[in-house]
Design a protein around this nucleic acid. Sequence first.
DNA 1: CAGCAGAATAATGTTGACAATCTACAATCC
DNA 2: GGATTGTAGATTGTCAACATTATTCTGCTG
Lengths: 230, 230
Amino acid sequence: MLRDDTMEMRTDIRASVQRLRQRTLVTEVRDELERMILNGEIRSGERLNEASLADQLGVSRSPVREAARSLEREGLVRTVANKGVFVRDLSLEEAAELYDLRAMIAGYLCGLAAKHADADAKTELGTFIARMDEAAACGDEQAYFGLNLEFHDYIATISGAGRAVALYSSLGKEVRLMRLRVLSGAESLALSNTEHKRIVAAIERGDADAARAEGGQHHTNGKRRLLETL
Amino acid sequence: MLRDDTMEMRTDIRASVQRLRQRTLVTEVRDELERMILNGEIRSGERLNEASLADQLGVSRSPVREAARSLEREGLVRTVANKGVFVRDLSLEEAAELYDLRAMIAGYLCGLAAKHADADAKTELGTFIARMDEAAACGDEQAYFGLNLEFHDYIATISGAGRAVALYSSLGKEVRLMRLRVLSGAESLALSNTEHKRIVAAIERGDADAARAEGGQHHTNGKRRLLETL
DNA sequence: CAGCAGAATAATGTTGACAATCTACAATCC
DNA sequence: GGATTGTAGATTGTCAACATTATTCTGCTG
């Protein structure tokens, strides 16, 4: 028992060290910039002033520069030579395309999840559904929004995919650039969760094709809701 | 007539300046590194030595660092803190996943191309097919390989998509990391071009659904061929 | 001789300074 | 008055030096 504990601690420490060791100023700044952009603290189209940000974050310009370049990977910014990096400004067409891409990849992930989900994963998915039902009943959009993100991330995790997961997450962030809350109103939340239930049902019975279709349809519906909002 | 000529020249110069203006040491180094990686001059798993590359290219480490980070966007390298950036080493599973993703996106692009292709585009597609037929008949794998890339890039262009095109191109480069020539042998080339013809036929008759299906299938067949090779 | 400290070496991370470029505004000319 | 040129300030691009971290080699100890 004692040995188990110490082993547990040791692996914990090792993991923690591993994590800390991977952190560097660039990653730190990167995360902070990403947060600022997604929170709208830096608005769409705005320039990321290297000197100002470096000063603000207490580092030199180099880490800021590299972090900004790194954000390009997620499509959060675009770089113009000799002018700077700017927070991307999504047109409606671009947003619609992002939804299409996300729908395809989400379907792919749901299909894989149906193949790979074990009993624990299925239980966890059920828990997510229940919690989102609760949030929907309370009309707590904030909570539902967070749970929704976690739910889809969880499906991505159990899919066992690599690049597709990263892509899905990246496209998700890109979409959030629009800063437009599609899910609003209790009935909208409930409807969204109905679709979640269909996805989970398909995953639970291991029906990959159905899971793929439901996952894709859920995101396509999201695109339709977005377009209807405008 | 004279006026037309000078106008023509002026726009040429303007475009050229515009292009040069966007070039900077970072982009220059980035392209060179990409070339080196895709040509296998830097092998999979190998580290990109900043100082050595900087020396070799006659620049300081900063542009090399940024260029290397920029290559991360295309998944050509992975960065490990305090250890460096390494050319990605694709496992078979990862490669298969890349093929799946590419198949989905290619299908998406073919579907859009079927909707947006004008008469000129259709003619151009026909030309590609003819040229690839010729290369296949001669068994010129090198030429077929290049034409194949151009053909798919052209479809991506006429699709009118934005992010999806970039993604498709990026995944294409990633796949090339394997440095495995799937297309070999005259019959293989001819078979591949048969599939191209089905795609072009669907685009020519404006059948988006069929184009999507054919485009996806073509890439899925590529994945199958890859897996059979091993 | 295996294995392990510890120094030496080499690489990356970070910084501040300088060069090149862009932007905005004022002075000039027609 | 309007357009154009020139100049000053701000911003990005690049560089070389220093700090920190990883790797390798060496010599010691059992």
